[in-house]
Write a protein that binds this DNA or RNA. Structure first.
Lengths: 302, 302
DNA sequence: GGCCAGTGATATCCACCGGGTATTTATATC
DNA sequence: GATATAAATACCCGGTGGATATCACTGGCC
């Protein structure tokens, strides 16, 4: 049962994505024949046909689809192993915390203070990145822990919920519903929802919108790449967006209003970490985060 | 940033476990010098010292400890990739369900019926294994989904709780507390707790016992390897054990009594699966399991 | 304190195989 | 049926993974 090598898995992923031996070989910086041989070797070792190929078409078998998914996990894990080991070997290792601007619900300073109060843990270094990057950073070992909103459902991450925030809908000031004090989601049937981001896994706000609008009554709006574009599209009347009320308050615009929607699930602020890197320092940071959040909500509650 | 190869990670894990180049080389079926060279190559590629070595002692650096942990995850993922791909390539692929005798809370038949009712999914095959094996089977890809009690906290598994069952304490019939109708955990201070299993991650019942008994008041009892041995030890008065009441009812013995303990957390029955293998079939099985559990508890509640 | 046993590092060599080039084979299109 | 394109086959070469032999260092022990 000789197992597969990392190199072979990289080859296979490239091939499965390109569905062409020549193109995949080009992307890998190698010639086509050795790629053919490598894949034949994998099929021999596994005793399984991975690709149905003629001279004109290449397509994955069921087993090939499984291997594509699994290989990505292995490659992530291998990249993470290198990255985390390198970081641990630095003269002064740091706990890398990935945050998104506005995605920490104002908790970051308090969390860091609590984390540093407990001795024996490496100092924290904060990196700022857009949504989606954080999950990738955690999985690939570039970061140890992250504060973010609405965790994507990607496998491999554990999380604790720190806070929930009610969501509203962003509307242009002149919209027929802009004057209402609160809305229910049924009111929004038929409003177009901008697609965000245009490629790859959708942003949680987008998925939330689809989940919350009744049935297929939500036509897809234009594609937007970031939050600013989203605001522009809404201002132009091309779509509506579900955002946390607190987040809307951070970006006030004269031409937009944010109306609370009472019957949709709230946005969550979470602390997340890779399931494969639960070090004592990560645990300490998570504890600091949950303590800080409990303290805040307790203070609000009193 | 050339990444590490699976082969190198296997070498490193063997070396880190043996802490001896010669012994590790022996275990790997190779000679000692190439192992030295391979590890030097890894350190060169990573730019990190993994082992502090003299001619008499070998010990891991901090970075080495990190890599050991990470390498195990990569090797698990790689083994799982091979296993799952092989299984998917079989003429008639199956959904492999790992169950523990008595660990399904009587749900298995109903869950299987519901799963098979939905068309389009491969037929299920049930494998029976002891506790701990199931988690390993899921991580290594030998099984797709498992019904088990008290999920170990190993990383890499997702789960949904299907049911909770109150726990009691097993006592020999002549024990000073055996006549009581119910107990509180304070009553049990000072009772010895058998260690189970003797090596590796502890069984959830054991960890629960330590969590629930006040402070360090619980001396460790003898080591036991399985449930039958645990019953023997308790019968001999060498220790006490926390078990789900339903589980105790399955193994009635004249010389043992099970007394409910009212202030400890209940045992949970969960459906679990590897985070890295969320196929539609797994999702369908999980849905069937939660539906079946909701149905049962609903029927009991009515 | 010096000898010896044991262990890791170095030196050197070989064989295998990962990868390249040239060619053949098969299929879709016109 | 001719042609063009892309995967498979044939063959070759160089790098490297692994083996054997040896050196160098550490630590126990008389």
């Amino acid at each position: 049962m000789a197992d597969l090598e990392i190199r072979e898995l990289r080859y296979f992923v490239a091939l499965a994505e390109e569905l062409s031996f020549s193109r995949a070989a080009g992307r890998l910086g190698m010639a086509q024949p050795p790629l053919s041989k490598a894949v034949q070797g994998m099929e021999r070792k596994l005793g399984v046909i991975l690709l149905r190929r003629s001279t004109r078409r290449v397509e994955l078998t069921d087993a090939g689809r499984v291997l594509l998914d699994q290989a990505r996990h292995v490659l992530d894990a291998a990249a993470a192993a290198s990255a985390r080991t390198r970081r641990a070997g630095l003269p002064q290792p740091r706990l890398v915390v990935a945050v998104k601007p506005g995605g920490d619900a104002g908790l970051l300073a308090d969390v860091l203070a609590r984390y540093h109060r407990e001795p024996g843990h490496p100092p924290a270094r904060v990196t700022v990145g857009g949504w989606g990057e954080q999950a990738a950073e955690l999985r690939e070992g570039a970061a140890d822990v992250a504060l973010l909103r609405d965790l994507p459902d990607h496998a491999g991450l554990d999380h604790e919920v720190l806070a929930t925030q009610p969501r509203g809908v962003l509307l242009p000031r002149g919209h027929r519903l802009a004057g209402r004090g609160t809305l229910r989601r049924a009111d929004l049937a038929g409003e177009p929802v901008p697609v965000w981001p245009p490629a790859g896994p959708r942003h949680a706000l987008f998925r939330a919108a689809l989940d919350h609008l009744p049935g297929a009554a939500a036509p897809e709006g234009p594609e937007v790449g970031d939050f600013q574009q989203l605001l522009e599209v809404v201002a132009l009347g091309q779509g509506v967006a579900f955002v946390p009320l607190a987040s809307a308050a951070l970006h006030p615009r004269a031409d937009l209003v944010c109306v609370p929607v009472v019957d949709i699930s709230p946005s969550t602020v979470v602390v997340a970490w890779a399931q494969t890197s639960r070090s004592p320092s990560v645990a300490a940071f998570v504890r600091a985060a949950t303590d800080a959040a409990a303290d805040i909500s307790g203070r609000h509650g009193s």
